[in-house]
Structure formats: C-alpha cells, structure tokens
Design a binder for these strands. Structure first.
Lengths: 158, 158
DNA sequence: GTCTCTGCAAAGCTTTTGCATCGCC
DNA sequence: GGCGATGCAAAAGCTTTGCAGAGAC
C-alpha cells in the first residue's frame, strides 16, 4: 500500500461518497490500532481526542460504511457490542477472521489458518454448500493466564 | 438419556433451584426443536401456545439459567439476537458449535467436525493457548439456493 | 411458612433515525 | 449553490431489573 490514505479518498469518490475529516479520522484511528477490536464507543473516544466535536452517530454511520466498502472488518465477541478492526489490506474477498479469546483476561489474539480452507472445500463437496466467508472464535486461556495459574498453584504452598 | 426430564428436575434440585412449570416447559420447547436456533422471543411464542400466562422476562431468565447449567447452548448469528438450542446431550464439556448460515435464505445448518480438533491441538502447542470451546460460523449459499440460481440462470432464456 | 420464582412494567444499553445545519465538491 | 454528511436528540429494539404477588418444598 503506497499511500493508502489517498487510495481511501479515491475509493470514496469512486462510490460517489464525500471525503470528510470524520471519515478519514475514523479510518486512521483504526489503522493506528491493528489487531484491536474496537466498539463504536471506543472508536468515538479515540477520535474525540483529536477531533472533539465528532458525534457518536457519525461513528456508527461511518463504521457501517467502511464495513460495506470492505475497508474494515466487523466482528462480535458476544458481549453485546459490535466490533471493528482494520481489514486485511488489498484482500477484499478473502477476509478470514480467526480469533482466540481468553476467558480470563479477555485479551483477543488473531491468527491465520489454512486448515479451514480444506474444511470449506470438504463442506462444498459433501453438503453442496458454497462457503464465501467465515467467522471462527476459539475460547480458552492464553499463555500468560496459563502461566499465572501455574504459578499460583506452585506458590500456594502457604 | 433414559428419562431426561427427570434428569433435568434432579439437576435443578442439585443446584438448589426449584422445579417450575415454566422451566420445564421452556426446556421441552427447545427439546422439541433440535437444530433450531431460537431467540428468546421465539421461545416465548412457542411456550405461550400451551402456557399462555408465561412472561417474556421469565424466558430470558430461564434461558440464561439453562445456559449456565450447560443444558442448552447459546449462539449468535450476528443479527442482534441471542439464540439458543438444545445442547449436545450428556456432553457437558465438549459442545462444538459449527454452523453454516445461508446468506440467501437465512437457513442454518449444523455440522460436526473433527478437523478443528487438530487445529486446536496445533494452537495449544504453537501459541500455548488452551482452547476449551469454540464457535464456528461459515457463511455462504446452501444447496437449494445454489440450485435455484442455477435454474434461474437456465430459465432466463428470454 | 419460607424463600425462590414469576409477571408486569419500567429501565438500561447499544444502535438507528429524523431533522436542521454544515461543508465538501 | 446543491446535495450529501454531520451532530444532536429522540426513538427503536433487545435484554435486564425492581417489586409485589404466587408457588414450590
């Protein structure tokens, strides 16, 4: 991506949309935080720091728009919030969201996997179901939390 | 499951909870519809047919309770509703939700897969992340919708 | 009889929408 | 200057909560 901000402005114009400070600011806020899964409220707080007059409704409208343009990806961690993260650049058609969610600390880790390609192929053949996208969430306990519980087990000898 | 309704009553009592008509009726409603992914409102409508005086709040409270007891499974299809289905019987610790969601007709298909076991094992080893549960959603187009679009393509010769 | 559960209504929360104003093109 | 975008506030929609009465044990 040589100059993705210019690309973004072009993308807006190509779709008959206007380039506004708010839209650029929201995208930049998400770009600065790759791998973060932000709620609309969180994005609102981030952008407000350098653009205090922005409204929450604008954030909601903009993330919807950016999601439709495939610039950002939508995901849910089943906590009642819709979350967004910067999309895998220049890969409009193959966004594979794989997330590891720690049930203890709540941290979210992303990972890429090719094993699912085989699964999708198998489903296509056996069930005649054509898979075009997927969302995978794995719940468990992360490295740090595992080690902590190991330590506490060791430490707990009075 | 020899007599799962008795088992359920026992489970409630063992947890210091009371056996009520509403709780039994809600579980029965879900049991009658295996593979259906019902919202609280839908469960409410089902139960109301034979128990008209039930309240929606009771349904919300009961599905939460049944979910905590691992009797039913919670899932989301990202449409703003929390959904519930009868859990995999007698398998309290290994519920593997795999869902195929048709983007055209909205139908949901469930499938079991062992490929993910290998993936989880790999994640455990490479990332030191202990997976205990997962939620997999695959979006695409089902058999019927695929065939329909094939037909409409054939039919559209005029 | 006690203590939990239920039903109703109200509140809570995230997200969406209406509308006058603002600002990009 | 026109028309889309914004900001505010109000509304919408799902879910939770408070409370008095009902029901399980």
């Amino acid at each position: 991506m040589p100059n993705s901000q210019e690309d973004f402005k072009l993308l807006l114009k190509q779709n008959g949309l206007k380039v506004t400070t708010q839209r650029v600011a929201i995208l930049e806020a998400l770009k600065k935080r790759p791998g973060c899964h932000l709620t609309a409220e969180e994005i609102y707080d981030c952008v407000k720091e350098e653009y205090p007059e922005i409204g929450l409704a604008t954030v909601y409208r903009t993330v919807q728009l950016l999601s439709d343009l495939n610039v950002i990806d939508k995901l849910s961690l089943d906590d009642g919030y819709i979350r967004y993260e910067i999309g895998k650049m220049e890969q409009a058609n193959s966004h594979h969201h794989h997330h590891l969610i720690c049930l203890n600390c709540g941290k979210v880790f992303a990972f890429e996997d090719d094993l699912l390609e085989a699964l999708e192929e198998r489903i296509r053949k056996t069930l005649n179901f054509q898979v075009v996208d997927h969302e995978v969430k794995l719940f468990g306990y992360c490295k740090d939390c595992n080690e902590q519980s190991d330590n506490s087990r060791t430490d707990s000898k009075i």
